[in-house]
Amino acid sequence: MADSTPDSKPENPECGHNATRRQFLKQSSVLTALAFTPGPVVQAAAAEWDEKIAAPFEKVGLKLAVNGKNYKLSVEPRVTLLDLLREQLHLTGTKKGCDYGQCGACTVHVDGKRVNSCLALAVMQDGREITTIEGLAKGDDLHPMQEAFIKHDGFQCGYCTPGQIMSAVACIREGKADSEGEIREFMSGNICRCGAYPNIVAAIQEVKTGGQKV
């Protein structure tokens, strides 16, 4: 994973200890919160996580599984899940279309539920499992929804597509894809400015009626 900003690098558990970082955390005012919070800040200090780079004390520890891979990270609390994925983990399949929860391009699954990753703080996802578009296919075998999007041409520019697909998979799993009308309503959180909507609905219907496991 190429990373150009060293102090935002996902930490590798194999790397050596960094006493400075732990010291920093222990001394920081954040610990005044200890009385009432076993939050990840404190957990991070207590757990004596391995860190390669001394991070500023504003950062907090975070454990995430993304597409089945475990990450131990240290992030500023204000980093959204979307920006963490795109800017730090370089998983750019998840798109930023508005940054305000108004377009759905950033849709990912958190513990199996579809959410807008732009309005989710990364730290609040501590311990959760994230699935992004990069994690949907099984190796070279595309997910049936991905196949159906190709077959029905459920996109043009392709920018909203990862969000549409993640949302479409969830839509079927939620049982909200029983009719064209229901699909349209429950997919309305995913905007496609190219206007490929009828093809997207056709793709979802095919997967829904095709009986494949989604």
Binding site: G93, L136, L142, F149, I150, F155, G158, T161
Partner: peptide, 9 residues
């Protein structure tokens, strides 16, 4: 380029 677009690549 369909495959690239549906896989986020």
């Amino acid at each position: 380029d369909g495959r690239l677009k549906v896989t986020g690549a």
